[in-house]
């Protein structure tokens, strides 16, 4: 579960602020955040993942205040790729799992499970830099779920995948919802977002309404 109360982060240099007075997201009920380009979606996701600090108010993730949160509880899929381009999917995954102090065998288990939604087994030995945009997006989502987080935050989930992926997203979100994972997805495609999420909120000029 994610609880946000009176959240405010000001970027004085740019005359911009991200605000959210009250927001609760429960597992099994994926939340969509839609807004136009520059409305503050990415900034909001970065704030609630702890990538941007010094905010006022409170963000509670799985019962723990964000500032005291053990990062293992969070899974974040950013818009741009953050995996190592020169390493293969397997090598990247092994590296991530070692950081989370998780059994390396978890990679195979997670791979088998995730392949029910997107077949990424064939990318196993490929370098991340060799993947197409769509393949990369599925791999990024896989990497975000690799360590079994309590909360999954995805920025622009349809990036490279398009409208044909909505059914798979819905199946994936239903499955991880049963595993008590809370999902927040931010996208500028409000139509697609409303298909894959139970609830959608709008962000405009940094304010979540």
């Amino acid at each position: 579960m994610v609880k946000i109360r009176d959240l405010k982060k000001e970027f004085r240099k740019y005359g911009f602020a991200v605000e959210c007075r009250h927001l609760d997201v429960e597992s099994g009920n994926p939340l969509g955040i839609s807004g136009t380009t520059g409305s503050g979606k990415t900034l909001f996701t970065k704030i609630i993942t702890g990538l941007v600090g010094s905010y006022s108010g409170s963000v509670e993730i799985a019962g723990t205040e964000l500032k005291k949160l053990y990062r293992k509880k969070l899974g974040y899929v950013p818009f741009r790729n953050i995996l190592y381009g020169n390493l293969t999917l397997k090598e990247n995954s092994r590296f991530l799992l070692s950081h989370y102090r998780t059994d390396p065998q978890e990679y195979r288990i997670k791979m088998d499970w995730f392949s029910e939604f997107w077949d990424i087994k064939r990318f196993d030995g490929l370098k991340i830099s060799e993947l197409t945009d769509g393949q990369l997006q599925t791999v990024k989502i896989f990497a975000g779920l690799l360590h079994s987080p309590s909360v999954l935050i995805i920025d622009e989930p349809f990036n490279g995948l398009g409208s044909g992926s909505t059914d798979r997203f819905r199946e994936l979100f239903t499955d991880i919802g049963k595993r008590d994972v809370t999902v927040i997805a931010a996208s500028s495609s409000s139509d697609l977002l409303s298909v894959i999420s139970v609830r959608t909120v709008q962000i405009s000029n940094g304010k979540i309404e």
């Binding site: 990538l51 053990y70 990062r71 741009r80 995996l83 381009g85 991530l96 950081h99």
Partner: peptide, 19 residues
Amino acid sequence: TSEKQSSMLSKLLPNGESI
């Protein structure tokens, strides 16, 4: 320089910066 893309990764992993 190869950390250009992945510097954010260190901020998401437990003790990522230190490691």
